[in-house]
Amino acid sequence: MNYQAFDAWWWPFLFILIAGWFATDVWRYTGVLLGRRLSETSQVFVLVRAVATALVAAVIARLVVFPSGVLAETALALRIGAAAIGFVAFLLGGQRIAIGVATALAVLLAGMMMGF
């Protein structure tokens, strides 16, 4: 029973609802129910926040190290280099996000134009 299984107009929508919406929002709802009992100053809160942060950091690493689409055709060293230089610029520039983003992008584009 895959996406193309039935020729009915509603089947792809149902497929997206089950394998997309429910698969995702079930975690959001669980998060709400757990978060209701949590105090902002408790140690459990600090732990869960650390887990959430490490997870997002892993998302960042995946997007840079194992990207999909056009970025996959660029050199790994270029992507890591651009991210690292952008991060250093962000730190040197008084932790301004725009500086980090602009620098990383400039390095990436320059590298792509040079064929990396």
């Binding site: 193309q4 497929f15 995702t24 998060g31 757990l34 949590l38 902002e40 959430a52």
Partner: peptide, 29 residues
């Protein structure tokens, strides 16, 4: 890839687990 409903659900749900701790920490705020 023509993956069936259940394996697709599992793949998607695994990629979305991260939302749980995020929502959990946002709720007290």
């Amino acid at each position: 890839a023509g993956t069936a409903l259940v394996p697709t659900f599992i793949a998607v749900t695994l990629s979305s687990v991260r939302l749980m701790p995020m929502v959990t920490t946002l709720v007290p705020d």
